[in-house]
Design a protein around this nucleic acid. Sequence first.
DNA 1: CGTTTTTGACCCGCGC
DNA 2: GCGCGGGTCAAAAACG
Length: 318
Amino acid sequence: MKELDLDLCENNSHRVINNYFLVLYFQINGMENNFFSLGMRSSSPKEESSGALVEELKRVSAENKKLTGMLTEMCENYNTLRNNLMEYMKKNPETKEVISSSKKRKSDEISTSNNNLIGVNGNNSESSSSDEDQSCKKPRELETCIKAKVSRVYFKTEASDSSLIVKDGYQWRKYGQKVTRDNPSPRAYFKCSFAPSCAVKKKVQRSVDDPSVTVATYEGEHNHPHPSQMEPTNNRCRNQMNSVAPSSAAAPSTVTLDWTKKTKCSNDSSYKNRMINSDSKMEIPQILVEQMASSLTKDVKFRAALAAAISGQMLHQN
DNA sequence: CGTTTTTGACCCGCGC
DNA sequence: GCGCGGGTCAAAAACG
């Protein structure tokens, strides 16, 4: 799929992309539901119902065409912009440092201030987090810290929900929990369940300022695909997902449905102000979601799977 | 019965 | 050297 090739993946955390897929998945599910409700609400003969479906299909196809055009245009714009940036950075190597340091300041702001601003802070080797600043003072340690990518993700959750479970789609094994001095709420330690082959760790703790915000600190990068992108032969992750979304076996976008229960989209195109909630409310650029949806629906395999799912549901209802 | 979670013990770096 | 605190280990318990 084209949107996966965008270098958005390169500089932003792949979790961001996955979040788009969650929204996308839900939107597609919504489409599916629309189809069903369309068929359900008609108490007239089946011909009328199928006529309405054909009309709806035409309308959706037209919309898809329009969205495809928009996506193409956006990709072109993005590539142009990226090339310009590359050229500019070649001419001005110091820019990288400026960007890097401003990024760091930004992350500090995010982590210490407004809790309603839920951010994804993906630090690369050029921009170390405050954690790294604190813990990596020796050169050798610094080296390992540079290797280990540290990022923080802020999740909006129910304050009453005491569990430290962050549904990011990956499988984690909890290996410890501690109460730290600076925060009355316990900190949970997780390792990727693919360890030791995948050495990614995460720490999850409630924000000291706002208990409704859970902070997940990720260390390292997964050396395996996101479970939602894995082959069907792979492990129980898939089984779990199938258990929540049995009708979408061929759809590539299933992670954890809990995230998509109450998905809403906003027209705000700013990535920085994106809100990620484990409680499933995510504000994602509507246009991007629509473009991804249109791209997905162009995919023959996906359409076949969707058709199979829809017809399966219809048969089940009849 | 295998896997995951819990939780007390232990390790280690850091500051005094 | 000692105490403190964060991070990890590993045995036991819980779970599916």
